[in-house]
Design a protein around this nucleic acid. Structure first.
Lengths: 212, 212
DNA sequence: TAGATTGTTAATCGATTAACAATC
DNA sequence: TAGATTGTTAATCGATTAACAATC
């Protein structure tokens, strides 16, 4: 396994491979080829092979990769093995949906608690605690939280982001549709619905035109 | 305005410009320069200028672009002006959160109704109807729905997707973490949380290493 | 052995950035 | 006029794809 610099493009494809590998039934062959993977995911096989070369220590010609170890390699590479603790700010609808989503376990993400300017309850129906903002700092420090999830309205996002950074957070998952200004060492990952919608509606527009 | 082929890369940046332009208070100057936009969004100014050239019919040297018409150009280009009707399948937590999200109006998206294999209620708290799957086909046909949003568990996503296509849907917004197989003329846009998480946890891992 | 598959090296493609001329 | 800004043309960069040698 070459621990080269990995490009973001590759990084973003890795979860897809892992999800597919995980979905293969237990009884199947313990090996899988890049060809098969590429076919299943509608990708080029050379690309798959190159991507896998970044994280795995190689497949065997004519046979392929050992599925088990490939899954292990990818999930280790992505850091899914050691869970990351996160907190979420903004316990509105979207926030609650994320809090209640069980699937994050599989990605090594553990949302410890939510914070809200005006908590309507002291915990979600799933039993996750909801604290007032005043407790944000002490909680993050006490639990050494490094990731923050922002699900507040756009106009409060920057303020919340600044607070998170002041609490020692290094990575921000931003669901608000605004650009966040942060220092260099902090990563903001935007989950931008508007971006997806743009791609979708462009496709529909083109589609309509074809049929006119 | 050059109606050239627009690349996906550009397309994905346009909503960001629009959101920022919309956030500028009414009292401000009616003009904005690419330089200012780039500064606010932390981007290169040449890139911004090139992107804007794709949708706008030009700014004026020394002055910049007329804010109003720039916003109009972008939103028209993205098809935000004529609203798109969509339906959503899977009225679980995430589905309900999307159903209740008011902000889609600003992007020209109108979710008409939700469908679920086992509806727990006949409408959401916001008053959007929830129908059983049996009514999917007639509803989509009757309302000429072209976009479908999938928020069902991964293992049912492909089946649902096939059903949507059979109902005449041309664009699928997929929140399930699986690859969907579709014919060529159908667009699938994956809203992939796993992808974002990969980028985030990679950053944290690198961060931890630096401090060890 | 023959053929499927891997991994690497080179070629292509596309997108970003730099340089510069044009304009108000 | 001088300078800020636009828009375009050329150069660079990075990622994808193609070609091919290596391997079991």
């Amino acid at each position: 396994m070459q621990k080269k610099e990995i490009s973001k493009a590759v990084l973003k494809r890795l979860p897809g491979y892992l999800a597919y590998l995980r979905s293969i039934p237990d009884g199947s062959s313990p090996y899988i080829s890049a060809t098969a993977l590429a076919g299943a995911l509608g990708m080029g096989e050379v690309q798959v092979r190159k991507d896998l070369a970044m994280v795995s220590d190689g497949g065997r010609p004519k046979i392929g990769y050992l599925r088990e170890s490939l899954m292990e390699d990818i999930s280790q590479f992505l850091g899914y093995d050691n869970t990351t603790d996160a907190i979420l700010v903004g316990a509105g609808k979207l926030g609650q949906a994320l809090l209640g989503y069980q699937g994050f376990d599989a990605y090594g993400l553990n949302i410890l608690a939510a914070f809200d300017a005006e908590p309507v309850a002291d915990h979600t129906e799933d039993g996750k605690p909801i604290y007032p903002m005043s407790q944000l700092h002490s909680f993050c420090r006490a639990n050494k939280v490094l990731m923050g999830i922002i699900t507040v309205p756009a106009k409060h996002a920057q303020t919340v982001c600044d607070q998170l950074i002041a609490c020692g957070i290094k990575a921000v998952w931003n669901f608000a549709a605004v650009h966040l200004d942060v220092p260099d060492n902090i990563l903001v990952q935007n989950e931008n619905m508007a971006t997806s919608l743009a791609v979708l509606s462009m496709h529909l527009q083109a589609n309509m035109k074809d049929r006119k």
